[in-house]
């Protein structure tokens, strides 16, 4: 099945990002295809390289970047990003900023869209 994932919440503050990550790993392990990952609302904070969590904690941005390196399309909404000061210069590698049209295409092309957030 082709699955798209949409994440609405920021890292660490909320479980959504971790749940989405675990969901995606499990889906891939079961042979599903991840159509794309879309960060919206405060979710755009998930992929800034400015974060520096304690060393014994998970590095959420790097985790997403590693998924991106495997070829999964990871998109940050430009409108949500601009409001929150997230620009290309602060992104970790393997993610990109684009428009809500990308979310639209994911919603149309994926068999399922799974939303993580409040």
């Amino acid at each position: 099945m082709k699955i798209a994932v949409c994440i609405y919440e920021g890292p660490y503050n909320h479980e959504a990002s971790d749940s989405a990550y675990n969901f995606i790993k499990a889906a891939i392990d079961r042979g599903h295809e991840i159509q794309g990952i879309f960060f919206y609302h405060d979710g755009v904070y998930n992929v800034t390289k400015l974060m520096e969590p304690p060393q014994d904690d998970r590095h959420i941005a790097n985790r997403w970047s590693e998924l991106g390196a495997k070829g999964i399309d990871i998109v940050v909404c430009i409108a949500a990003a601009k409001r929150r000061g997230i620009v290309d210069e602060v992104l970790v590698p393997n993610v990109r900023i684009s428009g809500l049209g990308q979310l639209t295409m994911m919603a149309i092309q994926a068999d399922r869209m799974v939303v993580f957030g409040d």
Partner: peptide, 19 residues
């Protein structure tokens, strides 16, 4: 919270597509 407002932005964009 901003969910409903930013959600409205999504609707307006998505309406321009063939859905």
């Amino acid at each position: 919270s901003i969910y409903v407002y930013e959600g409205l932005e999504v609707k307006l964009i998505m309406a321009a597509y063939d859905a």
